[in-house]
Design a protein around this nucleic acid. Sequence first.
DNA 1: CAATCATCGTTAGCCCCCTAACTGTTTGCC
DNA 2: GGCAAACAGTTAGGGGGCTAACGATGATTG
Lengths: 198, 198
Amino acid sequence: MPLLLLKDLPRYECLLKSAKEFPDLDPSAAEAYLHLLRAGDDAFGVSQRNLDAHGISQGRFCVLMLLWRSVHLSATELAGAKPCGDGPRTPAELAEGANVTRATMTGLIDTLERDGFVKREPDPVDRRMLSVRLTAKAERFLHDFLPGHFRTTARIMTTLSESERKTLVRLLTKISTQAAEMVGGPAPVAAEPCLTAF
Amino acid sequence: MPLLLLKDLPRYECLLKSAKEFPDLDPSAAEAYLHLLRAGDDAFGVSQRNLDAHGISQGRFCVLMLLWRSVHLSATELAGAKPCGDGPRTPAELAEGANVTRATMTGLIDTLERDGFVKREPDPVDRRMLSVRLTAKAERFLHDFLPGHFRTTARIMTTLSESERKTLVRLLTKISTQAAEMVGGPAPVAAEPCLTAF
DNA sequence: CAATCATCGTTAGCCCCCTAACTGTTTGCC
DNA sequence: GGCAAACAGTTAGGGGGCTAACGATGATTG
């Protein structure tokens, strides 16, 4: 739903026809591109219904997951791995992780705090910074919400076999890499992910 | 860019680990879901840069393509096929085609008209309706813009071979169909598309 | 030490999307 | 004919993105 896109995709013959008028139009590439956006939008729309039903937006959910991970990672983490950024996080770190601007993060934290999911706390050493913490209410919410969310995303992929999923991920990764290359830097591929689910 | 999403996707091992805590989490499904959203967002982001550089948003572009198609289809169309909705279109039809509400379409048409890309004209027979028409300026814009846009989308798919593209489209179509089934009606698959390129 | 520069969080203003309600017009059914 | 229902487009208000700029604090460096 976030993406404004043609409702019905062009048929392949129409693309072929248009390619006569526009030599730059590569029919199979255009078809793949349009189906990618359409499928992503469709899949996102399904899980968004879930979020809407619980009165939480995708952006706010993303912040909650980021914070939840820093709480629960230490618990789940086995001895070996480095702490991997546990403890509370600053708005700037959250913005980085959620891929939005700091200004946007301010707004998200505002509404999350207003609804009691999150608390701002001053940083004792650097007075420029804040720490953002999950409240007990948020932990309860996630505990109730996540299983259904996971079931929904699992159902979306029901139609694909295990090997089809592997193939899909491989092709999509190629596309992401190519896109990252086109947009600028040579793809931050091995950027030390270390995230828990979602 | 429209989608707020974790910047770095979880590694597969992390998903496996989280699946121990959440039995409903299907690791391969979650992986496919996240990569789908990420790749769609990345691909969209690339072409959005193109649009931004020309001061046009995705929504406005979509409206222009819808109108452009109704103008150019008759010209390109061979004798056989039915007119397929040629001529100007009403805001309600545009909203339907672009998959947004009529209220949203009002806003899009407002700014397009303000910038001289489009003109509203009263319908002579039904005074509730309007006809929206492309101006010459818009035709010129599309003529200049589309080749570059097509080259961009073609480049995104450069890394995929012809058979990989077919495979991708097949898998994505499965996902869209499944999503449509989950959201409600049994998928408007054969909905008489008949669109030219976008 | 002081001036400069970088960084943090916030604010202000814009665009685009949504829902809900409103005005005006046509249609349909007594 | 007249009145209710359906429909077209708009408006009002909200959420969630963005950029650009700001005050406050910290780091750097002459």
